[in-house]
């Protein structure tokens, strides 16, 4: 049995230090595990399908339209027919809401919907597409890429699900 008081005191100090270090080690292991279990919200979805950050009743001038879909802007368009149906409180028909890759096929600018003209417009070089995404005027050489649109939820308040598989 060790009766040296110096040795006993050193052992006690070592034991406390060991406990503190052990606690720090546990924290160092647990913190990244907890962060892994609760990650930050992703800034962009890499999925093939995404829900638009607005609902049908916010169209045609919904905030955040076009929105980020897999790193590319996605433009959702409510056709004039769809707008009338929505105003009458009727259920929207397939094709009333359309979604496009909003990158102009001319110089990669972002295109926008012009409800007053009923077309999709690129302000960089005045390129015009119709509501089927076909290039109809100006320099764009090709139509816009189209996405599949599915609506879900109660009529007039539907969520817009955009999918790459059109």
């Amino acid at each position: 049995m060790d009766t040296d008081p110096g040795s006993s005191s050193r052992r006690r100090w070592l034991l406390h230090s060991l406990q503190a270090s052990f606690a720090a080690t546990v924290a160092a292991i647990c913190y990244p595990v907890l962060r892994f279990l609760r990650p930050r919200p992703a800034t962009v979805s890499g999925a093939m399908e995404v829900v638009a950050p607005f609902r049908v009743n916010q169209l045609p001038n919904a905030p955040g339209n076009p929105f980020n879909f897999g790193g590319k802007p996605c433009l959702v368009v409510l056709t004039p027919e769809g707008e009338k149906r929505l105003a009458r409180g009727e259920r929207l028909q397939p094709g009333d809401i359309r979604a496009f890759n909003a990158i102009c096929t001319h110089m990669d600018c972002t295109v926008h919907y012009r409800p007053d003209h009923g077309d999709i417009f690129c302000s960089c070089h005045n390129g015009v597409y119709d509501l089927n995404g076909h290039n109809v005027s100006g320099p764009p050489p090709r139509p816009l890429e189209t996405y599949k649109v599915t609506l879900r939820g109660s009529p007039g308040q539907e969520e817009i699900v955009v999918s790459r598989t059109s």
Binding site: D2, S7, S17, L18, S21, F22, A27, I29
Partner: peptide, 22 residues
């Protein structure tokens, strides 16, 4: 790097503590 310090410390202290045992 900082998180490795307490781990190394635990190992070192453990060795030292074991040495102090009768």
């Amino acid at each position: 790097a900082v998180s490795l310090v307490p781990i190394l410390l635990v190992v070192t202290l453990l060795i030292l503590y074991i040495r102090t045992l009768p």
